[in-house]
Amino acid sequence: MGFKLLSKLLVYLTASIMAIASPLAFSVDSSGEYPTVSEIPVGEVRLYQIADGVWSHIATQSFDGAVYPSNGLIVRDGDELLLIDTAWGAKNTAALLAEIEKQIGLPVTRAVSTHFHDDRVGGVDVLRAAGVATYASPSTRRLAEVEGNEIPTHSLEGLSSSGDAVRFGPVELFYPGAAHSTDNLIVYVPSASVLYGGCAIYELSRTSAGNVADADLAEWPTSIERIQQHYPEAQFVIPGHGLPGGLDLLKHTTNVVKAHTNRSVVE
């Protein structure tokens, strides 16, 4: 069995187990497998329904001669939608809004960016022009300005110390501490036991640490421990890039980060 097929099978099995364990909360999309990078042309966006009122959005972007996937989250909030992270750029984010209108038909009224990198804030200006209120932590807003990236308009308070959590509509926002970046936030959907790890969490097929220019490698494993301790009931975990899975993604990420750190020390 090929690795790609095995990865998709694991996603399907995880979703099936969740649907059985929580039949009222989960209505997993039966329309197909989780979209992969090879299936999404740059400039297009796919939506994948995880649970009743919960979707991931998947886009792709060219970077350094390669094409990478990027995940975000959409959560229903009454007759409105909360968006977590842009679709990595203005063109993708405009396509995301169009796809949401086509498939869901509810307005996106608020959006949260989970850290300051372009795959999370690139497209904020498109959201703002569409009347979406954009939010991020003060740290993310400051770092985005320093980096020359787009800056969300509103500040999220109460997320300055490791372990801080605040309720934001249908989700809980959690600051686990520094990891992929010093400002990275985690998003949890309690009604569906869905954990969105953003770039602080890796997919299972990833074996290298990737972009760690703004990471705190020493603190990252401790931050992941905080996530595990705060959300032990999480059933569906979405990484910032690639295929979702279960809580095993947290341990896998820790292993990859520690291996990278150990290699760096040896070198």
Rank of each mutant, 00 (worst) to 15 (best):
V75C: 05
G198Y: 02
V187L: 05
Y231Q: 00
V256P: 01
Q228S: 15
E225T: 06
S139W: 07
V124K: 03
S137Y: 04
N92C: 04
V256H: 03
V237I: 05
L127D: 03
L249Y: 04
V11C: 08
D64Y: 15
R226T: 15
Q49H: 15
E267W: 13
Y175H: 05
A136W: 03
V126Y: 13
L195S: 00
A90F: 15
D119R: 00
A215D: 13
T36P: 06
M18S: 06
S137R: 13
L97Y: 03
R46Q: 07
S137N: 14
D216S: 13
E80P: 04
Q61P: 04
L81Y: 01
N184Y: 02
A25V: 06
F116V: 03
I151P: 04
S62G: 10
T114V: 00
L243E: 07
A133M: 15
V171Y: 02
V37K: 08
A25L: 08
I40V: 10
E219S: 14
Y196F: 07
D85R: 00
R120H: 04
S30C: 11
V189A: 06
G158P: 06
T261I: 05
R120Y: 02
N255M: 07
P23T: 08
L82G: 02
V121M: 09
Y231I: 06
D77A: 08
I17K: 06
F174D: 00
A215K: 15
V28T: 09
R128W: 07
A87H: 00
H57S: 12
P107S: 12
R76Q: 06
H180D: 01
G210T: 10
Y188H: 05
N255C: 05
T114M: 04
D164V: 07
V112W: 03
R141Q: 08
E150L: 08
G122C: 12
T36D: 10
D77I: 03
I201L: 10
E33A: 09
Q49R: 09
I40G: 11
T93L: 00
V187Q: 00
R142Q: 11
L250K: 01
A215M: 10
P35A: 07
G245Q: 03
G197K: 02
N149M: 15
S193R: 12
L6R: 08
S205T: 06
V37I: 08
V11A: 07
L96W: 01
V108P: 15
R142T: 14
K102V: 12
N211L: 10
H57V: 03
H57D: 04
N92V: 03
S30E: 08
T114L: 00
Q235A: 06
V11L: 09
Q229T: 06
F3H: 15
L97W: 03
I238E: 01
P176W: 00
I227T: 12
A87Y: 00
M1E: 05
G163Q: 11
F3T: 10
K8A: 06
K4P: 15
L195K: 01
D52M: 14
D214F: 11
R263G: 08
N92M: 07
L243Q: 08
A209Q: 09
A21Y: 12
I17T: 05
Q229H: 15
L73P: 04
Q103S: 14
D125G: 12
G78K: 12
T93Y: 00
Y48D: 11
D29S: 10
D52Q: 06
I20R: 13
V265Q: 14
A215F: 05
